[in-house]
C-alpha cells in the first residue's frame, strides 16, 4: 500500500491557495476593468483627462498622468535608495565599530517596519518645506532652462518630494538585502584581491561586483514598495492631474489616485471600473519588473557560482 505523506497533504492546500488567490485577483482586476475599456478603449491609459460627471455619457477617465507619476516617483526613489543602501552596507560591514554597527542595523530595520503614515506626515511638514527651500528654489532660480527644473516650485508638493520620501522609505528594505549579501561574500575573495596589490577602494569595488544579484533584488523590492506606496505619497505629491518631466511639478500616482477617489467612485457609472483599470496597470507593471529581475537572476546563477 502506498504510504500517505501527511506533510504533503498539509502543505499542498496552502500552496494551491496562494496560486488560486493570485489568479483570482488578476481575474477580478481584468473583469472589473472591462466596462471602462468598452466605454473608452485604450483612452483610459493613453489620455490625461479626469472628467467625472453624474451624466454617464459625459464621463471620461484617462489615468496616463497617474501611471507616469507612479513610474517617475518610483524611479527617483530607487535612484536614491540604491547608492544609499550600498554605502550603508559597505559602512556597516567594513568600517563601523561593532556597537555602532548594531545600532545602525537595528535603526534601519525599525525604519523598515514603521507605519508609512509616519513618513507621510513627517514628509509633508519637514521634508517638503526643506526640499522647496534648499533644493528646488536654488535649482529653479539658476537652472530653470533645464526641463527637469523648469517648473516653479510654488508649493513644494511634487514628484521630487514624493520620490525623495519614497527613497527614504525603501532604503531600509534594499539595505537589508544588500547588507546581508555583502557580508556573505567569503573572506578569501578579499584576500585574493588584496594580494594582487589592490587598494581598499578597488577591493571593495570587486566585492560589490559580486553582489550584483542582491542589488537587483534590492532594486526590485524597493521599486515594488515604492510603486505600491499610497498614503505617504498622497500627502506630498500634490494630487494633481499633471504630466510633466519637471521634478518640481505636482502630480498623481495610481495608488494615491485610487486612495483619493475610491470612496466616492460608486456615485459615478464608470469611475470604479476606471480605478480598477488603474489597479490592473499597477499589477502589470509590478509583474513585469519582477519577471525582468528574475530572468536576470536566472542568467546570473547559470554563470556565477561561488
Amino acid at each position: 500500500m502506498k504510504k500517505v505523506d501527511s506533510f504533503k497533504i498539509l502543505t499542498a492546500p496552502a500552496v494551491i491557495f496562494v496560486f488560486v488567490l493570485f489568479a483570482y485577483m488578476l481575474f477580478v482586476y481584468i473583469y472589473m476593468s472591462i466596462p471602462i475599456f468598452q466605454w473608452e478603449g485604450c483612452g483610459i491609459y493613453l489620455t490625461n483627462i479626469w472628467h467625472a460627471s453624474e451624466i454617464p455619457a459625459e464621463e471620461y477617465y484617462g489615468i496616463a498622468a497617474a501611471i507616469w507619476g507612479s513610474v517617475y516617483t518610483s524611479i527617483i526613489a530607487v535612484v536614491i535608495a540604491l547608492p544609499l543602501a550600498l554605502s550603508y552596507s559597505i559602512f556597516v560591514n567594513d568600517f563601523a565599530p561593532p556597537r555602532i554597527k548594531n545600532a545602525v542595523i537595528v535603526t534601519s530595520d525599525v525604519m523598515a517596519g514603521l507605519p508609512t503614515i509616519i513618513y507621510g506626515i513627517w514628509g509633508a511638514y519637514v521634508l517638503v518645506p526643506f526640499l522647496r527651500q534648499w533644493v528646488m528654489m536654488p535649482l529653479y532660480s539658476t537652472l530653470s532652462f533645464i526641463p527637469l527644473f523648469s517648473y516653479p516650485p510654488v508649493s513644494g508638493y511634487s514628484y521630487l518630494s514624493a520620490g525623495v520620501l519614497l527613497g527614504i522609505m525603501v532604503t531600509p528594505f534594499a539595505s537589508a538585502i544588500i547588507r546581508e549579501a555583502y557580508a556573505s561574500i567569503p573572506h578569501t575573495y578579499r584576500e585574493a584581491a588584496y594580494s594582487l596589490g589592490l587598494s581598499r577602494y578597488e577591493v571593495t569595488r570587486i566585492v560589490a561586483g559580486m553582489i550584483r544579484p542582491a542589488m537587483v533584488s534590492g532594486l526590485l523590492l524597493a521599486f515594488g514598495r515604492a510603486i505600491g506606496e499610497t498614503v505617504a505619497v498622497s500627502l506630498v505629491i500634490g494630487n494633481t492631474f499633471n504630466m510633466s518631466i519637471s521634478l518640481f511639478s505636482p502630480g498623481y500616482t495610481i495608488s494615491s489616485l485610487i486612495a483619493n477617489q475610491f470612496g466616492n467612485a460608486f456615485i459615478y457609472e464608470h469611475m470604479t471600473s476606471a480605478l480598477f483599470a488603474g489597479g490592473l496597470a499597477l499589477f502589470v507593471i509590478g509583474t513585469a519588473i519582477n519577471m525582468a529581475g528574475l530572468l536576470y537572476l536566472r542568467r546570473w546563477k547559470q554563470n556565477v557560482k561561488f
Binding site: 585574493a192 594580494s195 559580486m210 561561488f306
Partner: peptide
C-alpha cells in the same frame, strides 16, 4: 603585495 603572488587553500577565482 604586487611582488609576491599568493594562491589560497580554496580555489578563489572571482566568480
Amino acid at each position: 603585495r604586487r611582488e609576491i603572488g599568493m594562491v589560497f587553500q580554496y580555489p578563489n577565482p572571482f566568480p
